[in-house]
Amino acid sequence: MSHGHDSEQVGHIVPLWLLFGVFFALIILTALTVWTATHLHLGAFNIWLALIIASMKATLVALFFMHLIWDKPYNGIVLVGAFMFVILFLGISLMDTAENMPDMYEGPAPAVATE
């Protein structure tokens, strides 16, 4: 526990050029993701490309707009940890339903439905 004085500097002051630089990078990435989605036909890879670009944008926002790069590491760990648990949640649910879900839609159901 640090016992600093009351005048201790709290928080990092981000220079304006950096704020604007991040903003323009975000706009460019947005344009890029729209372009790749509408003009590049990569099949299943499109979604991953979109997710990679989105993750880059999210990283920029988190690091610079949200000050994580200058912050106590714990706060970053909290955010990354939250995302890890999201991935865990999605991953296991997907693992299960990928085995199961097609079953639920196939079979002789329509014969009953159209009668």
Binding site: L88, I92, D96, A98, E99
Partner: peptide, 16 residues
């Protein structure tokens, strides 16, 4: 990591 053990007979997949 263990929530699926509540769902063994619920139609959860064999793998899960």
């Amino acid at each position: 990591l263990v929530w699926g053990h509540h769902m063994f007979p619920s139609g959860q997949s064999q793998l899960a």
